[in-house]
Design a protein around this nucleic acid. Structure first.
Lengths: 213, 213, 213, 213
DNA sequence: GATGAATGAGATTTCATTCAT
DNA sequence: AATGAATGAAATCTCATTCAT
């Protein structure tokens, strides 16, 4: 039993601090967050933070990395999975991305921090692109290509900008970041409609000739 | 007529300061911006700022308002215009929105500031919604409704979330805020493809029966 | 009369601060000196110091330079003067050096700071050598050489280490720095005896008559 | 016999710590030295230092005492020795003092610390005077007196300030503390010339009448 | 004996804000 | 109108010291 409480505490400290840091940084932004408040949230004193992290900047970076990692892992895992048809996979993939980009408060707020502090922490942006956005876009392009080859996806220049498929999730993200307090959104419904829009577009399906000659 | 230059100078001061404030706030964020740097950019000293603005907070608010106003006015004006068919108007309206949301650096960076400081300046968010996003969405809904009535727009639940039509512009905005330094994007092309996607969707148009029963 | 008190104040501030800094740094050493105490000594607040000096390090450097300058100027001036014979000039030159190295508390304490912080402020050591010690030693060598040529100074290898003539002043300096509180020293007498020792040495003069009538 | 290494280790710890403390204190001065660095130099952690020493102040005091003791003992021993003539003894005594004051880096740096921290650790200064400088000066006075009585040393007021004989060593010490990095000094030669100067002075020996009427 | 997590006081530094000129 | 010296509160960061293990 020796070393129980102490040791357990120690092992958990960094995580606790990162968690608290996340909340404070999200609430106030990087510059306006006081390490003292982060410490207080954990129930320790300022000094303790410096025992685990070099300085405020490093704490921020570590926090973003820590909270991003599980998401990146999940995304990797999901991308590796497969489904029968392209539209089917697309639907489940987009659902997954919706969840981690727009629905999950964590992912949402991390994105806020990245947008806000992009110029101060370019390395984080790079990592985010390398570990998440890049692979996601590549996977989307692949699905579109394959689906197109199989005739499941129409011939379209969307293949040039597969990230357009993320647009509904990203715009919902912004909407939530800006207006969530004001007017609640039915995110499930938003997703359903977005998928419908992406798959079928706005123009009536009945006409045999397209309207853009 | 002596003092003409002076007088002109004086009249321009507030605008110069707001301009400088915009650049500094964008570069560093609200909290990390030093009024001294704003002043230096104008070529005056800190004290002068306090002659024209109550404090840092008010300067920020005034700056966002000042830079948003012309955009809001343009948007209002554009919304009042008309075109023959719904798809036609949609195309030109979206083009306009693309420009002020994603292509124009001003609009882009203002959105960054709103996202970053949403919790500190809720009033600005309200104004933004009231003067821009709200009217835009209302106009979009109206176009969709009218188009649908005329058979130009297919019957679709997109009418529930007209803001989905903004998704491409908003996501391009985020993309630019995050990755513009890294990877240049052909924004014209992005727009064309987005319109195509919105109008026609991903599924093949040719078959008479849709593939989503 | 406009701007009187204010302007006068402003012009004097840097000097006041340097003066106060000198006293605090001497009393506590570089690291243990608190800028708040320096400020309090002047009657201003911490912030004011940062209006005039970049940081603690620069304040220290500026202080040492400021207090050294007059001494260096005097030394230069004195070195330029002349006397009839070498021993005569030597006596008056050494008297002068005694004063600024060992007798004057300012010079004494500056040397303490240089010794204490040599490794942290190598530039100051360089300046001290370049502006003071170097020229002094060169002048001493010249006097010895000339005196030797004229037969006023005996042929001796002291010419190799003219700085040895500074030894009494420097050792008195150390003595004062270490033991001044404990045991008062008659510095006039110390000087007289040192000159006698340097000129005549310890060994009896070989000539038949005794050497100090 | 298990634990032999351990036991030896343990017995050596305090000495190791003092040694490490010496190096750190010399490098950074008292205030700027971090106990953590001292500990790291030994290969232990901060806590261990507190097992052997009460606090930072006591560590400093113990360190100075520890490193001074062997010097004081040697000095005592040497002072007890004798030589045929006064000038002979003087030469060897001064040589010894040169070594421990100016040539040996240890003695040199200890003096730097004493000069730097004189006001914070008056007790150390007292001890230094009582155990070293005082006895040395007394012995010098005695040699001068005896030599003078025997006619080996000329009648001179140097008897009033026998510490003047230490001046060359002390000034070399300062020179090394300040300028050693910059310009190397031939310390052997310095000593030889200093002895010559002390014994024979600067004035030509041949002239029968002194030059100071 | 030794560790190292934790503390908390204190130091440097920054900067929005004021106000006499 | 504008300046810029001065303030003072607050934030980051450091580190001697303690103590449970």
């Amino acid at each position: 039993m020796a070393g129980g409480v102490r040791a357990r505490r120690k092992a958990e400290r960094p995580g606790e601090i990162l968690e608290a840091a996340f909340e404070e940084f999200v609430q106030n932004g990087y510059a306006a967050t006081r390490l003292e408040d982060v410490a207080a949230r954990v129930g320790v004193t300022k000094g303790t933070i410096y025992f685990y992290f070099e300085n405020k900047e490093q704490l921020f970076v570590a926090m973003v990395r820590e909270l991003s990692r599980p998401v990146h892992l999940q995304a990797e895992e999901f991308a590796a999975s497969n489904s029968s048809t392209a539209p089917e996979f697309l639907r489940s993939y987009l659902c997954f991305l919706y969840r981690i980009i727009a629905t999950d408060p964590r992912g949402r707020e991390i994105l806020r921090l990245l947008i806000a502090e992009a110029s101060r922490f370019p390395a984080l942006i790079d990592e985010h692109h390398q570990n998440f956005m890049g692979p996601v876009v590549r996977r989307l392009r692949q699905v579109l290509d394959d689906g197109n080859a199989k005739g499941e996806i129409r011939q379209s220049s969307v293949l040039e900008f597969p990230e357009l498929l993320l647009a509904p999730a990203l715009s919902l993200n912004i909407w939530m970041l800006l207006f969530s307090d004001r007017r609640p959104i039915d995110m499930e419904r938003h997703f359903e409609i977005a998928v419908d829009l992406l798959l079928n577009g706005l123009l009536p399906r009945t006409t045999s000739e397209s309207n853009k000659p």
